[in-house]
Design a protein around this nucleic acid. Structure first.
Lengths: 346, 346
DNA sequence: ACGGAAAGTGAAAACGTGTTCATTCTTGGT
DNA sequence: ACCAAGAATGAACACGTTTTCACTTTCCGT
């Protein structure tokens, strides 16, 4: 349907644009790359013809020569998990605005990282990798990601090894949980709570360890007995069951911390709909995350908030900085937390 | 750190593997592609050395020559939306098992599709595209996706133009909603409900139109007055507000259909926590989707179920069939729905 | 008008792989 | 032991870009 001599099936190529615009193929390349010298009117002509032909530079070819795929790999155990789906959503938007795309991979739900997946992902040449899976050793990750830039999310807490952990050579996002936990414990204590339980996340996950340790430390500082640990795995169902066990097999509690908001929902439903307890009158409940669902009326959860937007901005900032300057010294970003008070306490 | 002469920074190349294995570079290529003739012991040797060197064929180079990127683009207005996050999750798992990866793109939340995004995505050369955005015209999509295979999800309903709609030339997944809607309406009618409202989804979305039309038709067939339409947009907050309007500005209803489960949660919370009505005694509620949250005790929602696993299997089957045989005639897959009865009716 | 610097230009090389096509090696049957 | 057939092999080309490097043109100050 074109008057060009060579009409290959599929997309237009730089050669075709050049031919039709009576310029060299190099000029076409330059027209699409800023910071190259090309006569403005010529660039304009080329871009117009390119649009006519529906031409876009082939990213595979571009990646091959430039070494940049403009892909960011995201490894996640469970896309549906509310916090993670919200983080992926925000991340995708931010990356899209910077000319990147999100490449999604799923790993096992027990938060373990398998090497086959890493090798698989590596084949796609991501420029950077964000691993929400937390128990992979940085050295393992680095070994499998030759050129890609890995980003670590770290939760400093009493007892964590600070720099031997991820190593001083890697960029890192530090999430400081102390402020939010202190506010929550102070509030609970103010209402007279003393027997405080912790419905955990996946025990191997770093976020869970950090939360439990921080809670233990803060409670000790305020003269409270150590928290009663109810093992769970971040899921609604397991948290629900753990709560039943806590009250039926154990001695119950005045207040319950859940490792995440979804777990807190399970706790709430178990308390109200199966154990016949009132919240917050009989038991007080606090979560972690502040996902969008936490303000829903059925739950209306008091929770330790992580600022998602700020977190994603920090992640993207780290990625872009590192990509623009691969040899720069390790960078760190820091994030605070705070308590959002709603109806499950007080 | 290697005894090889040329030590380029970054990943190993086929040339290095060949050099070290004392074979030609072509042999290395063959070792990684099945259905090629290569002496078994030689292939074994090459693969072993490749593993030692941590070598994997570069997908960018492979894509350039083969024309296959092994990427599947997924366009979505909102990753956090529960149904969609669950679909993305299942899709990613299935694609990963077939050697593909999910490439995620976000569009505006009003379900409109903009051409800039399509052009942007096209640059990444996806082999196939699944558009959950429903109001894009197939011709528009096709024009922007030269080589990629688009897959359409279609919701046939009374009044929909069947083949002029997506065209007979495109693969299609048909989701038949009649069975589930009929079961739901019959159940409601059995309990004496007569004034039935529909809290809608985004009005421009095809799924919403299909659901509303199907509901209207089924209700008419059973001698019920037409549904009261409460405009909403699939979100919890909007459904919540729409329900308040329905009862405060309007005349209320015996039963409420929500266009999706998340919307139904908003309806439930508005009824119970703001209007002081009991469910199911005063008002009965039915949703669409059957997402994982619908069995949570606080909601325990009766809903029209879409079988997610089956749906994803069908989508992947369509994609792979088309990729293996680009010239095959258009394929269609069909999916049924059914009612899942829980606590919000009866 | 002249010299030189700056900007614009195109030919050719590179990126890492799959594929085609002759050529060489192995194998089995007579 | 010989011939033919089939398998295994490697050289060369192709894929669509970006980049480097000379080369040519344009521009400005004296």
């Amino acid at each position: 349907m074109d008057d060009d001599g060579s009409m290959t099936r599929g997309r237009a190529t730089a050669e075709m644009v050049a031919q039709r615009a009576k310029v060299s193929r190099v000029a076409v390349s330059r027209a699409f790359n800023p910071h190259t010298s090309l006569k403005p009117e010529k660039r304009e002509l080329i871009l117009r013809i390119a649009q006519e032909l529906n031409y876009t530079p082939d990213r595979a070819a571009r990646a091959l020569v430039s070494g940049r795929s403009h892909l960011v790999g995201v490894i996640v155990p469970d896309v549906c998990s509310h916090w993670e789906s919200q983080e992926i959503d925000a991340l995708t938007t931010a990356l899209q605005n910077e000319g990147f795309a999100t490449l999604l991979f799923k790993t096992r739900t027990d938060y373990s990282m398998d090497e086959k997946l890493l090798a698989y992902m590596r084949g796609f040449n991501p420029d950077s990798v964000i691993a929400f899976v937390e128990n992979v050793k940085p050295t393992t990750l680095a070994r499998f990601l030759d050129r890609a830039v890995p980003i670590y999310v770290h939760y400093p807490h009493p007892g964590s090894v600070d720099n031997g952990d991820t190593g001083p050579l890697h960029d890192r996002l530090n999430v400081l949980q102390r402020a939010g936990v202190e506010q929550a414990v102070a509030l609970l204590q103010g209402y007279g709570a003393r027997r405080i339980a912790y419905v955990s996340g996946v025990s191997k996950s770093r976020a869970n360890t950090a939360r439990e340790q921080m809670l233990r430390t803060v409670m000790a500082e305020r003269g409270l007995p150590p928290p009663i640990i109810a093992p769970s795995d971040y899921s609604y169902d397991k948290a629900y069951a753990a709560t039943l066990d806590l009250f039926r097999l154990g001695a119950g509690a005045d207040a319950i911390f859940a490792a995440n908001d979804v777990g807190a929902f399970g706790v709430l439903d178990a308390l109200r709909h199966e154990l016949g307890l009132r919240v917050p009158e009989d038991v007080k409940v606090v979560g972690f995350d502040d996902i969008a669902q936490s303000h829903w009326k059925s739950y209306n959860l008091t929770t330790v908030k992580f600022d998602l937007e700020e977190r994603v901005r920090a992640l993207v900032r780290l990625i872009l900085r590192r990509l623009n300057n691969p040899e720069a010294p390790a960078l760190q970003e820091t994030l605070q937390t705070r308590l959002v008070v709603r109806g499950t306490v007080g």
